[in-house]
Design a protein around this nucleic acid. Structure first.
Lengths: 151, 151
DNA sequence: GTGATTTCCTTGACATGTTAATAGTTGCTT
DNA sequence: AAGCAACTATTAACATGTCAAGGAAATCAC
């Protein structure tokens, strides 16, 4: 029984000093700040950058899959795609087979923005890894996934 | 050298399938959903709940400390406090010693909302712990803190 | 003291998060 | 084929996130 368990009745809440929700918020802040700094000159938000990243990796996707893979709500994605299509970074079309869907793809202009920032983004990603060490970094990812996936 | 390191050139980005930012977003979603469900009947947001939690734990705090401890931006906190003061859950006053500050405190009505939901919140918090096991849960918190604190 | 600087909070503008409602399609059932 | 259910994307309304700018008060420098 760890130190934290002692004197913990079932109805006790953990201190906000060591609370999982707040720890997740702070970590997201720490991880995102360098990415936002990188994107400051481009006019992109971190969410728009993730959309480019995902489409670059998987190719054209319909809205729901894109939203899922980029960690965005469907309603947010709708607006983001509208903005980025207007800016010439994305294009979309409705497949004849199922006209409910919107298939979204990157334009050449979008690929150019990706290319311009990939190297910096890779350095930022590597810095997280260095910060924790490779083993702890992988374990952090594992733990976060176990939190998200009920199985 | 781990499997992930092989064939990784310095300029390569990790796959969005296993990306720290997206993993953090998904984990936050998983952790917050039960809390939002709990609060559905109260009209509170998860952020407003955190404000109550922090003030309950530390007593009256000025805006910047409250924002920091609750994981909120100062500008968001300003609006949240306005809303919650209007709803009678918080009260604030300006200390004579430093009239720049706003000291914020919970009202009896705020404490009542806290009391009504504490037991459920404690069960939710315990469920995260159970899901990962106590040891992994503590390590997850440690890793998240190491990500946030440069030291 | 006075002016410059810093601290603390607030506001505004815009993007996203969250939820609920809705229109348009498709699939299923009969 | 007609009706109903399920699916997909969008919109609206409101709260928060993010950044930049601003006002009021305290602090510093001289």
């Amino acid at each position: 029984m760890s130190r934290q368990d002692r004197n913990l009745r079932p109805s006790d809440l953990p201190s906000t000093r060591r609370s999982l929700p707040i720890a997740l918020i702070r970590a997201r802040e720490a991880v995102m700040t360098p990415i936002r700094d990188m994107l400051a000159g481009t006019g992109l938000t971190e969410q728009q950058w993730r959309v480019l990243r995902v489409l670059d990796e998987f190719g054209p996707l319909d809205s729901s899959e894109l939203a899922g893979r980029a960690g965005l709500m469907a309603s947010s994605l709708t607006r983001i795609v509208q903005t980025m299509t207007g800016a010439g970074l994305l294009k979309r079309h409705t497949p004849k087979a199922d006209r409910r869907r919107q298939v979204i793809a990157v334009t050449d202009a979008g690929r150019a923005v990706l290319q311009d920032n990939k190297a910096t983004a890779a350095l930022i990603a590597a810095s997280y890894r260095t910060r924790l060490g490779a083993a702890d970094y992988e374990q952090l990812l594992d733990l976060l996934e176990r939190l998200s996936d009920p199985e």
